[in-house]
């Protein structure tokens, strides 16, 4: 860690926990997760449904109140802010949602949706200027001017997602959580949106958290990738490293499970047995042990620590780590 001091860290998440109480006990959706993101970089968070990846994104933005832990954004611990301070800070931290259908208010036109944050924070008071800014944002995300007064239900998924992006960009944020922004879209549209998000990042110097279940997308898009399993981060490494040399057995299985659109691709598939269960009152053992082909005695007795096995390559595994 000490040699990393020079890095320009924008977001530092420390021991973040988010528990939900359910009738069957406490659900440990995010359980003691720590990571950092450098300014201008993208961290991809991957995992299967219920692994807590979306909860992390929402806890960082305090759309869900974290149970414990710290989120330090640009040197400021945002978990200590009160409601009004947090509201002001929201201008700097934004989110793009998965579902381009439910994330837009059906009663508001394209321009009203994009304009709303500008109005709420009183960023641009003059109506004419605000209109100019909305048009400029629409151009940035590739929405034609003629769509200014249309309603979301008149538009396709790709265009709606562009509206969501424009809304997030309106306040010139520094950091955006992208929660599965392309998984509801067709491949050709998905590629359009991914390119757009790349361009915007380069232009505005944005920092992203990119949450997805699609490994090939995250490999393309992120600088670092963190793999989540049942509320825990099990592996984190720069994208190339993770794909070339996955260490955690779960990461290995996950990578081998991607269907590759290449008929000459030969890869031994590791088919896992069983499925992810919800981490309700988990025992202090390795959460992957029940499905792991390498599980040993130690795995059934203690929880592995998340440690740096190579520079920048973090793994939580007794056997491989």
């Amino acid at each position: 860690m000490s040699e990393n001091v020079k890095k320009d860290i924008l977001l530092d998440v420390q021991h973040l926990k988010k528990y939900f109480s359910t009738p069957r006990g406490m659900l440990h959706a995010v359980d003691d997760v720590s990571f950092q993101i450098e300014r201008g970089k993208t961290l991809g968070i991957v995992g299967e449904s219920g692994c807590g990846k979306s909860t992390i994104g929402r806890s960082i933005l305090r759309l869900l109140e974290p149970t414990s832990g710290k989120v330090i954004f640009d040197g400021q611990d945002i978990t200590a802010l009160n409601k009004n301070e947090m509201r002001a800070l929201r201008q700097k931290m934004q989110i793009i949602f998965q579902d381009p259908f439910s994330s837009l208010d059906p009663r508001m036109t394209v321009s009203q949706t994009i304009e709303e944050p500008l109005k709420l924070h009183g960023i641009i008071k003059d109506k004419k200027q605000r209109e100019q800014r909305v048009l400029q944002l629409m151009e940035t995300v590739g929405l034609a001017e003629r769509l200014y007064d249309t309603y979301p239900h008149e538009l396709d998924g790709g265009r709606r997602q562009r509206i969501g992006i424009a809304r997030a960009l309106a306040m010139k944020p520094k950091f955006i959580v992208c929660d599965e922004p392309v998984s509801a879209l067709d491949v050709s549209i998905q590629a359009q949106i991914l390119n757009l998000m790349e361009d915007i990042q380069a232009k505005e110097g944005l920092t992203y958290i990119f949450i997805t279940h699609d490994l090939s997308v995250v490999n393309h898009f992120a600088d670092d990738i963190a793999v989540m399993y049942m509320g825990r981060m099990v592996e984190k490494a720069p994208s190339e490293k993770l794909f070339e040399n996955p260490i955690h057995p779960y990461t290995q299985a996950l990578l081998s499970a991607i269907p590759v659109p290449d008929i000459h691709h030969q890869m031994k598939r590791i088919v896992l047995k069983g499925e992810v269960t919800s981490p309700i009152e988990p025992k202090p053992i390795c959460r992957f042990a029940a499905r792991c082909p390498y599980a040993c005695d130690q795995c059934m007795h203690s929880e592995p620590e998340f440690k740096e096995v190579e520079p920048d390559h973090w793994v939580a595994c007794h056997v491989k780590g």
Partner: peptide, 17 residues
């Protein structure tokens, strides 16, 4: 439960809004 409610929170809208 719709995401646009969360989106409104995320852009910093007050509860009554």
């Amino acid at each position: 439960e719709q995401e646009y409610i969360e989106a409104a929170k995320a852009i910093g809208a007050k509860d009554h809004v």
